[in-house]
């Protein structure tokens, strides 16, 4: 099989790029002497990192999944940080105290990465 693009991956990468406020490629055209740098968070992992920052877990729960969980005989919302928000707030506190959001250049108001 000829090596080819995986469209699902391209979409994921695109989502990561959309989560980025400043595009270095565009900036380098405006400021050609500005040195490019490698951001701490690669574009491909930004969607997962963002969810980690916002819900504390990689995957969110929606109404559809809640209904399926119920059909499987489970509580609609699992007793993870999805339900127990104190855990999420504590994680966010640790992330901020340890400077992780700053280092990854994540703006918690805009919910985007600067670079």
């Amino acid at each position: 099989m000829k090596e080819e693009k995986v469209k699902a991956w391209e979409k994921l990468l695109e989502s990561g790029i959309k989560l980025t406020i400043f595009n270095q490629n565009e900036e380098s055209q405006l400021y050609p002497l500005r040195k490019l740098f490698r951001p701490s968070a690669p574009n491909i992992v930004k969607p997962a990192l963002q969810r980690d920052f916002e819900i504390g877990l990689v995957y969110p729960i929606d109404k559809n999944i809640e209904e399926i969980r119920e059909k499987c005989g489970l509580d609609r919302i699992p007793p993870t940080a999805h339900l127990i928000k104190e855990s999420l707030y504590n994680k966010i506190k640790i992330i901020e105290e340890a400077g992780i959001k700053d280092e990854l250049m994540y703006d918690k108001e805009k919910k985007k990465f600067y670079y």
């Binding site: 992992v45 990192l49 980690d52 877990l57 007793p79």
Partner: peptide, 18 residues
């Protein structure tokens, strides 16, 4: 259940970052 859990947190991503 272990209650109030978060992401494990993914070693493949996070260990690589820091």
């Amino acid at each position: 259940y272990l209650k109030g859990t978060l992401c494990c947190i993914r070693p493949g991503v996070w260990k690589a970052i820091n």
